[in-house]
């Protein structure tokens, strides 16, 4: 593979007696959309949590864009350039949509407590820039009409988009999406597909967990399949689709 943005090797993660991830290796090429699929409980979200610093892996190596991120704290991971969304949406529910995205700018701004109380010109300029950028991102995902609404009052589709906007606010190199299409109707799913393509074309690599096989097969450049914490297949969509192990573990016959 030409240029790997993210590379993990031999990642193990145990929960007590449960081996949630065993010796998982991945290499995500820069500028691609990389799919991660597998049956329920396969360990996909666990892998996300390991990649974003929420879980500490037991063994393995993890390099991202030339940096060693093995067992790095979440905020370090974000600083290195990985942002994510959550399977069970985790917005700041009591904040407006705009404020949610503004929180995403935290890492790209610097004003501390002193700046906050002094409100010096630099802090004010920075605050205005945060607001502008957040607004721009709401525009980018197409939800400016609900900018002033509390996050918890948004429709499901809007919440998913808001989570993506918030993640993009950190200016990631890799955007990790955990089942972004879950619960969406076909039209919303199609809009989401276009949004993901737009993000990728904007130069952000995407790691996508998704159960919608049609969406994954159509959109992803490469796909990895997890089953019981093991990577059972990896490759371009067509190869993965035909892999007998994948058909047995996940796709079944019903999908074809």
């Amino acid at each position: 593979m030409a240029d790997a943005l993210l590379k993990i090797e031999g990642i193990n993660k145990r929960f007590g007696g449960l081996q949630a991830l065993s010796a998982v290796s991945l290499e995500i090429p820069r500028g691609s959309i990389y799919g991660l699929i597998g049956p329920n409980g396969a360990g996909k979200t666990t892998l996300f949590n390991v990649l974003t610093g929420l879980y500490m892996p037991d063994e393995g190596t993890f390099t991202f864009d030339g940096q060693d991120l093995f067992r790095a704290k979440p905020h370090k991971v974000v600083a290195a350039g990985i942002a994510r969304t959550f399977q069970n949406i985790r917005l700041f529910s009591e904040m407006t949509a705009l404020e949610n995205v503004m929180v995403g700018r935290h890492i790209k701004s610097r004003a501390g407590a002193l700046g906050a109380v002094l409100r010096d010109p630099r802090t004010r300029a920075e605050e205005a820039a945060i607001r502008d950028k957040a607004w721009e991102l709401l525009e980018y995902v197409g939800i400016t009409d609900v900018a002033g609404e509390l996050a918890r009052n948004l429709s499901y589709g809007h919440q998913r988009r808001l989570e993506i906007a918030r993640a993009l606010a950190t200016e990631p190199k890799l955007l990790a999406l955990d089942e972004p299409a879950a619960g969406m109707n076909p039209r919303e799913t199609d809009d989401l597909r276009q949004l993901m393509a737009k993000v990728r074309d904007g130069g952000v690599t995407i790691l996508l967990i998704e159960h919608d096989v049609k969406l994954v097969m159509g959109l992803c450049d490469r796909i990895a399949v997890l089953d019981y914490g093991k990577r059972i297949a990896e490759g371009v969509p067509d190869a993965v689709r035909k892999d007998p192990k994948v058909i047995e573990a996940y796709l079944g016959v019903a999908h074809e």
């Binding site: 929420l54 905020h75 700041f92 929180v103 935290h106 890492i107 918030r166």
Partner: peptide, 19 residues
Amino acid sequence: RAWVALREDDIAAASMGIN
């Protein structure tokens, strides 16, 4: 804002790069 984010959801806050 970072405080409110922490109050609302500390895991999401950490995942937004807040220390």
